[in-house]
């Protein structure tokens, strides 16, 4: 009779893939990943609201948690162990520069450079912008409905940012992904669109609106959202805002097994840093790939299963037919 199982050696993987999802900062609610329900997802099509960051390099997990012994007796001997501190860090390098990877690889706010108004005064993080246009109801994460006159202001290949006007509020701003924390009221009506993560490339323009090349990370625009064109992105060394994301790292094994590292709450912990990787080992001073380096601190969540505080969930879905 043919065997129906085999003893699987340690997983063999080629690369690590990263995904992230928003944390609701106002309610401190992370996005949870359930490997039992969602573990079989297509790596190119993660379940909402997870957004793919592509393949990453030099993925490294480091636990800073410490335990200590409670000693008893003469001579003293360990009676039991207690967990003294709970800490974990993650570091990695992104293989692409996008709004999200750049934002994750900086320590503070990450801003969109809005297209400046004609004759606007210069500013290091973007001059006063061209007026925003109103987004009409019925828009989705991939199609932005606009009045015909407004749609004509954009062209395929434009980058656009969508979010609400800033109206003087304080606290976390940006929906549903918080892009900044406003400590005192500002005067820039475009401020939320400067920090929003709802950014995408326009692939087509027609008289009813814009078709986006990729879905908006935050999903369909919120009511009252407005749209502005973006020329690029900027971040700063400095600032006191800490972004926070739920993160998921996936290692796909050669036999179909999967290892998941799910950090419900990750905050970038170092300022922007890059590394240059020469394209050719024979020419170290030639062309080099500039990779974004990122390092994160894991924050705890309370697991409702048993009330334990945890930083990371490591899950393993074994290969088909492998002994467990």
């Amino acid at each position: 009779m043919a065997s129906t199982w085999y003893s699987a050696p340690a997983p063999v993987t080629r690369r690590v893939r990263a995904y992230l999802a928003p944390v609701n900062r106002a309610t401190a609610t992370p996005t949870l990943f359930d490997p039992s329900e969602q573990g079989g997802f297509s790596l190119d099509n993660p379940p909402a609201p997870w957004v793919s960051l592509g393949w990453i390099q030099d993925f490294n997990r480091k636990s800073g948690s410490r335990t200590s012994s409670v000693l008893s007796g003469i001579p003293a001997a360990p009676l039991e162990q207690v967990r003294e501190t709970l800490q974990a860090q993650v570091s990695l390098q992104f293989l692409s520069w996008t709004k999200l990877t750049m934002a994750l690889a900086t320590g503070s706010q990450h801003m969109n450079l809005l297209v400046p108004a004609s004759g606007a005064s210069t500013s290091a993080d973007g001059a006063p912008a061209v007026s925003a246009v109103s987004v009409q109801s019925g828009s989705t994460a991939l199609f932005i409905m606009l009045a015909a006159a407004d749609a004509a202001k954009f062209a395929p290949g434009s980058i656009v940012a969508l979010d609400a006007d800033y109206t003087g509020q304080t606290g976390f701003v940006g929906a549903p992904i918080s892009g900044a924390y406003v400590r005192q009221a500002l005067s820039d009506v475009d401020y939320i669109r400067r920090v929003t993560f709802n950014v995408a490339l326009v692939s087509e323009v027609n008289s009813t609106g814009l078709i986006l090349a990729e879905p908006l990370p935050g999903g369909a625009p919120v009511a009252g959202a407005k749209l502005q064109a973006v020329t690029g992105f900027v971040d700063r060394e400095g600032g006191c805002f800490y972004q926070e994301w739920s993160a998921l790292f996936v290692m796909q094994g050669s036999q179909g097994e999967r290892i998941f590292f799910h950090y419900p709450r990750l905050q970038p912990m170092v300022s922007a840093e890059e590394s240059s990787i020469p394209l050719s080992g024979k020419s170290p001073s030639g062309h080099a790939r500039v990779q974004l380096k990122a390092q994160f601190l894991a924050l705890p969540v309370t697991d409702p299963l048993d009330g334990e505080r945890v930083l990371c969930y490591r899950s393993f879905l074994p290969a088909p037919n492998a002994l467990v």
């Binding site: 065997s3 085999y6 050669s254 036999q255 179909g256 290969a319 088909p320 037919n321």
Partner: peptide
């Protein structure tokens, strides 16, 4: 052809 238990990579 009979499908076996593992994958070639």
């Amino acid at each position: 052809p009979a499908t076996m238990l593992t994958q070639v990579f």
